[in-house]
């Protein structure tokens, strides 16, 4: 039995714009993935807890509030603390180009800014999730 890729789509931070997250969620669904959608205003702790309980392969976070440099790395650290650093963490939203290298250094493996075709994100997840033993 083939195991579908499981992705947690989360909105950290305080902005209420979830259109992008929903579009991504739908695209991943159509690519045959199981998307756990958690809704708005999640704390990094909530996101890490949900990722572990749902045993996801990938955490995809959409953020438009400007707090990405704080919140996204926090999730990576929390996952590491739980020994779940094999989970692929990616981000998307309004994120200035100059912030992207810093985020990648912190373990956010890709950042997709507005205008990215959803297929690019789908392909990235498919080719970068950690295969399981």
């Amino acid at each position: 039995m083939e195991r579908p890729i499981r992705v947690l789509v989360a909105k950290p931070g305080l902005d209420g714009h979830d259109r992008g997250a929903k579009v991504i969620a739908r695209a991943l669904r159509d690519a045959g993935m199981e998307v756990i959608y958690t809704g708005l205003r999640q704390t990094p702790e909530q996101i890490a807890n949900a990722a572990i309980q749902e045993d996801v392969d990938c955490v995809a976070m959409s953020i438009l509030s400007g707090a990405h440099n704080t919140l996204l790395p926090k999730v990576v650290h929390l996952l590491k603390e739980e020994g779940a650093d094999d989970i692929l963490v990616i981000g998307g939203g309004v994120i200035p180009d100059e912030d992207i290298p810093g985020l990648k250094e912190e373990g956010i493996q890709a950042v997709f800014t507005p205008g990215t075709p959803t297929q690019v994100t789908v392909d990235f997840i498919k080719s970068h999730v950690t295969p399981r033993a």
Binding site: E34, I36, T38, G39
Partner: peptide
Amino acid sequence: SPFTGGAILGDRIRMNDLTSDAGVFIRSMG
């Protein structure tokens, strides 16, 4: 989805506060 095998599991949206509670475990299933 019967066509792609994908799913959107959205029950957690209504259970946000529970996610921070160490005495609660939530698992979504397709």
